[in-house]
């Protein structure tokens, strides 16, 4: 249990620090890999919590997604490697203020609200429980997600296709 405190603290810190670095490095390619590191840290925390399947899905999906992102950067961005340092931000001070206020509010809530914590339960296989739920009581959720993904496939092709 104390090991889990250390793991969650350390990996949470890694996720936050790499997340912050995403918006401070010059190179967008580096930013992509820092974002990937942040996602891998969160995926590892999920695995530490016992959600082995979902944690692995997050890590695998994000690895592939970030590779696609790198391709898009090289295709479209004017300065993907950060060789010509330039700032591409607007209203930095206002954005920081909003972000800090949101962080303050959320953190206050996190440490003041009395959460009901029955603690980790012995549920057997959480992946089996998830599959049962998605094919049973949560079927509507699954169908909605499927439809949303289908709409995304059609929508992305419709938006991105050349009109000439």
């Amino acid at each position: 249990m104390t090991a889990l405190v250390a793991v969650v603290g350390a990996l949470g810190a890694v996720a936050v620090v790499t997340g912050l670095l995403v918006f401070t490095v010059n190179s967008m390619a580096r930013a992509t890999f820092l974002l990937l590191a942040s996602f891998v840290a969160v995926g590892a925390v999920l695995i530490g919590f016992g959600l082995g399947y979902l944690g692995t899905v997050v890590i695998l999906m994000m690895t592939i997604e970030m590779m696609i992102m790198v391709v898009f950067m090289v295709m479209l961005m004017m300065n993907p490697a950060g060789l010509m340092p330039m700032t591409m931000v607007h209203n930095r001070r206002g954005s920081w203020a909003i972000a800090l206020v949101v962080f303050g509010l959320l953190t206050t809530g996190v440490w003041l609200v009395p959460f009901p914590t029955p603690g980790p339960a012995a549920v057997g296989d959480p992946t089996l429980a998830l599959g049962d739920a998605l094919m049973g009581g949560q079927m509507l959720t699954m169908m909605t997600l499927g439809l949303a993904l289908l709409a995304t496939i059609v929508g992305t092709v419709a938006v991105a296709v050349s009109r000439r």
């Binding site: 936050v16 997340g19 995403v22 918006f23 954005s95 962080f103 996190v110």
Partner: peptide
């Protein structure tokens, strides 16, 4: 919360 705030900063700025 820190991740959400960081993401918000990035999306806004």
């Amino acid at each position: 919360a820190a991740l959400i705030a960081t993401g918000l900063y990035g999306a806004l700025s």
